[in-house]
Design a protein around this nucleic acid. Structure first.
Lengths: 147, 147
DNA sequence: GCTTGACCTCAAGTTAAGTTGAGCTTGTAG
DNA sequence: CTACAAGCTCAACTTAACTTGAGGTCAAGC
């Protein structure tokens, strides 16, 4: 069979739509993997495109790179993931998404009733209290991402 | 009638559950307003509690402080907002929320079909292309918030 | 064989949303 | 009237997710 050509960073960047610097960054974060040519340049196997696509999609739904990295741990090292591997991942995220959607709906439905009314007294407001509060941890910015 | 007591930062912090430093920060960002005592201490009118509550709720659904500030522009300066004022705001956000929920659903439904299948070739993948791409602008971190 | 565009590394900058700390002032309870 | 908790300001630090820039190397075309 025709050998599947390996890709350079530039090519991956062009095809995936993310900047070269971002690809470097993802690699540093362990989200993608490359090997080097004799001249120390990165070469990617084709499945990096899928990985990158998934990274962007996941980010769009509010999953942090750390979360994505964690999910990716379930993928096999040094073996191109099979469809089954990816399916496992997507199923896990589907649940996360379902949860988020449900949460948003609750908030949306609560908004009109609650902001508009006189009940915003914090302690008693159903909107403030019916949702499980975020567990806050660490320092610095806490809610950069809806997660 | 009994004069409605003004609140100190500490009281607002305690009642709203946000840190004093955050209140300072919100004020610097123009999200809340206070006047000062002769001794230069902040005093808040009661409706700051509602404002803060709304700030937190809005953040939880992924609206940035900048976005909240913008929405708050529609509220009257130097007049305690009426229920109608707040309603206007909540209606605007309801739409935003509806949009987000719809987007999430699309993504969720696309995920299983798309990640699991072999179509992740970026250019052709329906998931990658059917959504309106984010308009990227400025420098620095671009997708800290799902917006 | 050399020029030019693509790469490489590493450090530093950026934005958002706050927090932390130092140094100093207020206000209230005893 | 004097502690001492609560305020105040301002600068610096934090995290996430990248980008920008400087200074140097690779490789493909003419």
């Amino acid at each position: 069979m025709a050998p599947v050509r390996e890709l350079t960073v530039g090519q991956v960047a062009a095809r995936s739509g993310v900047a070269v610097s971002a690809l470097h960054f993802y690699e540093a974060r362990g989200l993608i993997r490359s090997h080097r040519t004799s001249g120390n340049q990165r070469r990617y196997s084709r499945d990096v495109l899928r990985r990158v696509a998934i990274i962007r999609v996941a980010q769009e739904v509010g999953i942090s790179l750390a979360g994505i990295a964690q999910a990716f741990q379930s993928l096999p090292e040094e073996r191109t993931p099979t469809r089954a591997d990816w399916n496992l991942l997507s199923t896990a995220w589907r649940d996360e998404l379902d949860h988020k959607i449900a949460q948003m709906k609750k908030l949306r439905d609560g908004l009109t009733d609650c902001i508009g009314c006189g009940c915003m007294s914090i302690d008693k407001c159903p909107l403030r209290n019916k949702e499980d509060r975020l567990a806050r941890e660490g320092t610095g910015a806490r809610r950069l991402v809806v997660s």
